[in-house]
Amino acid sequence: MAVYKKTYRPYEGELTPSWSRFLVIPRYAFEELHRSRFLSVFFISSFAYPLVCALIIYVQHNASVLGLLGVQGANRLISINITFFMSLLGWQSMMALFLAAFIGPRQVSPDLANNALSLYLARPFSRVEYVLGKMSILVILMSLMTWVPGLLCFLLEGYLEGWSWMRDNAHLASGFFFGAWVWILILALLALALSAWVKWRPAAGGLMFGVFFVAGAFGATINGVQRTKWGHLLNISHLIGSVWVQLFGDTDGTTNGALFFRVPRGEELPLWCCWASLAVLCLVCLYMLARKIRGAEVVR
């Protein structure tokens, strides 16, 4: 057993580079998340769909496997195209939403509820670094769930199909990558902003779902009552679905592969409106964080 001196002594040793200190936060957060069995199981199970996709890609290119299965010619029924990758992105993005709703509120709420922010920010550690540190937890986990398996599937398909397929379909990889990043940033900002604002973990998680599903339903109600399509501005999944369609280089947002992110036919919003709405949402989240992430609250 270690024996510690019961005395105070100044620290004269080396210091870590200041740019790397925000990484301390995700390291501690991952240690804590690792202890949650539910989250570990959920995270691992989120790779089931990408695994199935990888198997489909492999089987499609392996005639002997199809022969073993007795379904020769089935490879003509499966096509690895925009719909395939968008459906993978759509499914994984839903999983990411659930993950963000579970672990997002764990990040900021406990610090605010127990006034720990003053301790973080009394150190050579800025508010921006704090937010970046907390965001990086979500960004890393959601990246592992979305664009990382997506790009691995793309590489597998490219490896099996050949270089020319990869070159011709590079827009799928870039669409997947950038589409996932837009979604990840929105989810991460929203999860942190709501948990900073509400401070109570269960309420922040519930609010996260509320923003997506209740606001979407509210938008649909507005559309029904007012006979308009602008209610979809409140539906984040429709907005992001439209953005994905553009990023993937598709033309029809109403039939894209991402099931939960499709826009009903005839109710498509101008693309710039979708981008602008998502940008406004991000700005609102940043404003909420700027108001709440402070070392000391000012009572005017």
Binding site: E32, P110, A113, N114, N115, A116, L119, A122
Partner: peptide
């Protein structure tokens, strides 16, 4: 801030 140690007045910790 790198020179300072701060003990705030109110409760300040991470409960779990």
């Amino acid at each position: 801030r790198s020179l300072i140690g701060y003990m705030p007045e109110n409760d300040a910790f991470i409960a779990n």
